[in-house]
Design a protein around this nucleic acid. Structure first.
Lengths: 233, 233
DNA sequence: GAGTGGTCTAGACCACTTT
DNA sequence: AAGTGGTCTAGACCACTCC
């Protein structure tokens, strides 16, 4: 089966974004130009651009044009940091501590991540809001996909903005597994909680524009004052 | 601003589904017929049907036609019961106990639910998998939207299938707030857990095809052997 | 005013399902 | 063979943004 023409258009644009040929914030060709360039009609180019917008890779605005999505700290937090005030309003935690190192991937990490990497960069972080410690996070990313990451410490507050700006790697979606557990060991210590205090354990696998699993993150949240907010559809 | 024509088509179909004029599983008119009936082109009717499919209200299949989504226990569990095996496979719990009564709505329920109802039906349920108690659920639905619900006990295993079949009320999405808490009181007793054992508290607000908040559900999950699985995008 | 995306049309052909 | 949705085109006009 020959793939439909709009698929070819989509793949072309995705590739340009993933290779950095189209930078974050850059304006794409108009529907008409893109169609002419790739030998399809304006309507077909349009269909491809609409699909890319639905995936979150580009943003379109009537009268302005189509632009490669630029993650800002705000949009990144809104999409991927799910803790909310009881009234539903966003919270913006501060970064408190960070440690970064290169190490061998665990078996589970190697299995889950793209390219079955032997080594990962581990980014350990602690975030607080006001006087309270909120989250303990441990992210692992494949060394081959993020060359030289260790030399860039300290990393900015929002990792997904950094991945995009430094590596043209746009996180588009993530799967999460949640559990209620009793705080233990390093997490309990970091969050300054008694062992056994109920906390939310979140195991996240994040995917990029090419649908590759590029980050595995284990977080431990305090949910005594905030809610973990999700939408099902 | 005049609404676009495809919006009128969408609203027409949504209304027919919500009133029961189009029953679950019923076949819709073809793109051409629908366009002729409503005085728009086939392409505009098509756009409306695509949008309705994206919302989950209809399902389309090449060569067969377009059909009103029929919730089955399987599809309902898959979409709205988020507990999964550690390997990601679905679990299908059994209904263990149920109690149903009419009572005054709490202030929070009245505020959250459509029509600010004074009274709700409360459906209390306990589910187990194999030997283990898994979930304690308490659902509240507005009395005005579900007339005569109390006389229909015992209710089937999956409430959302029942809402659709008995009341033409299709749940299309839900917002959830999650917390890790220590099990207390009735929930601890029902789940046969010691007080303080970490469990997942889930507060859900479910919306129908008209985007009305029609159910408020508080659940308590054991997550010692299973994961609560969510997707972010 | 020029350029962009948003809506809408009319028509064509293809791929698939059903009878 | 008939009927359905899926793809694709060419063209039109509108609404909006920016210069």
């Amino acid at each position: 089966m020959a793939p439909p023409l709009y698929r070819l258009v989509i793949d072309t644009i995705v590739e340009r974004i993933a290779t950095g040929a189209l930078q974050p914030g850059a304006m794409l060709p108009s529907e008409t130009q893109l169609g002419a360039e790739l030998g399809v009609s304006q309507g077909t180019a349009r269909k491809a651009l609409m699909e890319l917008e639905a995936r979150g890779l580009v943003q379109r605005a009537q009268g302005r044009g189509t632009f490669v999505t630029m993650r800002t700290p705000e949009s990144s937090l809104f999409h991927f940091f799910r803790l909310r005030q009881p009234d539903g309003s966003q919270v913006t935690p501060r970064l408190e501590g960070e440690s970064l190192r290169r190490r061998r991937a665990t078996a589970a990490e190697s299995r889950a991540l793209h390219g079955q990497p032997e080594h990962v960069f581990e980014i350990e972080r602690l975030r607080r809001l006001d006087a309270r410690h909120l989250v303990y996070e441990m992210s692992a990313v494949p060394v081959p996909l993020f060359p030289g990451l260790a030399e860039r410490a300290p990393l900015p507050n929002t990792l997904y903005v950094f991945y995009q700006q430094a590596y043209s790697c746009i996180i588009t979606r993530a799967d999460e597994r949640l559990r209620a557990i009793g705080a233990t060991g390093r997490a309990a210590e970091a969050l300054e909680l008694a062992e056994g205090t109920p906390v939310m354990s979140v195991e996240r696998l994040a995917f990029d524009a090419l649908d590759r699993a590029v980050e595995r993150r284990k977080s431990v949240f305090r949910t005594d004052a905030y809610d973990y907010f999700v939408s099902l559809s």
